[in-house]
Design a protein around this nucleic acid. Sequence first.
DNA 1: AACCGGGTCCCCCGCGCGGGGGACTCCCGA
DNA 2: TCGGGAGTCCCCCGCGCGGGGGACCCGGTT
Lengths: 221, 221
Amino acid sequence: MTLTVLLADDHAMLRSGMRAIFDTQPDLECVAEVADGRAAVTEVARLRPDVAVLDIRMPKLDGLGATEQILSDPANRTKVLLLTTYDSDEYVYRALKAGASGFLLKSLPPEELISALRVAARGDALIDPSVTQRLIARFAVSLAPPPTPPQLALLTAREREVLQLVAAAYSNAEIAALLHVGDETVKTHVSRVLAKLGLRDRVHAVAFAHMNGLVQARPTS
Amino acid sequence: MTLTVLLADDHAMLRSGMRAIFDTQPDLECVAEVADGRAAVTEVARLRPDVAVLDIRMPKLDGLGATEQILSDPANRTKVLLLTTYDSDEYVYRALKAGASGFLLKSLPPEELISALRVAARGDALIDPSVTQRLIARFAVSLAPPPTPPQLALLTAREREVLQLVAAAYSNAEIAALLHVGDETVKTHVSRVLAKLGLRDRVHAVAFAHMNGLVQARPTS
DNA sequence: AACCGGGTCCCCCGCGCGGGGGACTCCCGA
DNA sequence: TCGGGAGTCCCCCGCGCGGGGGACCCGGTT
């Protein structure tokens, strides 16, 4: 089973270099070479190669845009490997979000590019080590469990409940209705919450709650 | 400059196998072999190798716990590579959170383990491709949510600016002072923002802004 | 020329909110 | 037995806020 590959880069020199690398591998077949992103999208749709290797910087449509178009097609089965000279974080995030199978620097040794191709073809993914480092850093904080601020321990269960409703932008009257209590009661709870947390008003409470993960941020993403 | 390595695995067979691999590289020196996590922590503290290769499943203290202890020491300069047979997602997250430089499967070809060592030693990071795939999926959704809601386009630049300050829980008077305008002006902007976004009051605006990523969530985590 | 959108400033009015009190039930622990 | 915390409900008062108007200046388009 040979792997079919599409090559997209606006430098003919680099294309032929990569093609030469591929030719050393009997099971790799470069079925197309294109020089811009738009051509990459149409050729991928036509030839349906196993893997498309795209440069990020290309005329007409850059590699990121091409990736997004290619992978947004549900009929598509081609994996995308992105190549770049510089590793801007923004590039990486956009690439991963689009669903790219790899994000590699052009400084990569040829044999590793080959192995990256095979990795992508079997559905796995691969990120350049120098990028991975920063990715981990950012990923770790985004995964970090909400570091429940100690002040929250001061609140009673009822007060936390009210705080969450305040954070959801409910008015005192609405909270009263939801909890089946009088609105004077809610006012008391809110006042206590503000006092215990050292917050000025419910607006600060909303901001506090959101920044401390008390409310499910963006459930609709 | 030779790289010093510590090897931690409870199977003597596997240790000797890896050691054999290292010995093929003149610039790699295996300075210690240990069979459990606790020994790994103490030996790393004593010998300060460049890289520690830890199995996840080990007696007394597993590789994850050992990683956390090693990397929580601020004086530590050793990089940690984790090895495992099975790639549980939970393992990966904990490993990355602890700051590991690599997460590899034992099925990795020997020569790639070598290159992983060098990658880690120079401060970069490396994740096994099969794991990377799922990591990207999860990472993408966790990073995805700046899909700027279309309603935001209705706002003028000034109005967005005011909205961000509202989201930061500033009062109208405070915003006026920050922007060097009258507070009546701020009231006008806020009113327009609420009207354009269909929000009831500034409390809803705060919640809206936070849920749509207009404000940097937990900057202090 | 007239027009319009963005930014700025001003008025009045009503209401929700938050702080200051107080009071009454529970229930748990001293 | 007597606290005392938690939860509930009530009063009054002041103020920030948001909606309703209107007004002015400026830069661009028509």
